[in-house]
Amino acid sequence: MAERQEQTAADAVMTRIGQVVILHHAGDREEARHRFLDLWAEIGEYGDPLHRCTLAHYLADTQDDPWDELAWDLRALAAAEELTGDRLAEHEGTLAVRALYPSLHLNLAADYVKLGRAETARTHLRRARGAADELGDDRYGDGVRAAISRLELRLGEGDSSGGGAWGPPRQRP
């Protein structure tokens, strides 16, 4: 019974994160940032790694300063790396967490481009490409792969087969 209550509480946190994502996508970036920060304070920097990964991943998008964006994307990656097989098994969407790695590294590559650190950007871009096999053959996966290709072209990496005009490479589920 306690296990079921814990899972319900965990699902409630993910639901709350999702609600703020909707707010952000509706255009209220400032309010979304404040709500995400309130959730971060509630979860804590040592809370559930899945919650921290998801929250930091989205919180990065609400930042105005590229250094702040980088800091949140680094937090997201660090939290993802804390996730163990046992911990992932407790949550639905285990594959979805592994599928975040291409996006996590893509976002870090984009952050480093904004900061003028092309070599570090290339390193994360190669990691994004290497993790892209975890992506599904769906709209999200196609979008992340296309964004990787666009950034590769911008940085002179890869080929021109999957590119297109470069746009913001941030891809979220």
Rank of each mutant, 00 (worst) to 15 (best):
T123W: 04
L88Q: 09
L55I: 06
D137Q: 13
Q5M: 14
H124E: 04
H124C: 03
P49I: 03
M14S: 03
Y58S: 04
A80L: 04
V144H: 01
A118V: 14
G141D: 04
A79G: 01
F36V: 04
R122Q: 09
A78Y: 05
L83V: 15
D65Q: 11
S103G: 15
I17K: 04
Q63M: 15
G93K: 00
Y140P: 01
E6S: 13
L23R: 12
T15W: 10
V13K: 00
S160Y: 11
D73P: 00
D133Q: 05
E6M: 14
D137W: 09
H124P: 01
Y140M: 11
G141A: 09
E81V: 05
R16A: 07
G164Y: 05
V20N: 00
Q19D: 14
G18K: 03
A12I: 08
G47L: 13
A118C: 08
W67P: 00
A41L: 13
R52M: 11
G18R: 10
S161F: 15
E134A: 15
W40F: 07
G130S: 08
D38L: 14
A76W: 01
R87Y: 06
G163I: 12
R126Y: 09
A60P: 00
E30L: 14
D133T: 11
A78E: 10
P169A: 04
E42G: 10
D133V: 08
D61F: 02
Q19S: 10
R127A: 09
Q5R: 14
M14K: 06
R29T: 15
L95R: 15
E90S: 12
L106Q: 01
R33S: 05
A110K: 03
S161R: 11
L39Y: 04
T84K: 07
L115T: 08
R98G: 10
D133N: 02
A89T: 13
D137G: 11
A121V: 13
E92H: 13
Q171S: 01
R52F: 04
G141R: 03
T94C: 08
A79L: 00
Q19C: 06
Q63P: 00
L106M: 05
M1A: 15
D28R: 04
P49V: 01
R139W: 09
E30I: 14
L70A: 07
G47T: 12
A99M: 03
L37V: 14
E119F: 06
I148T: 01
L108W: 03
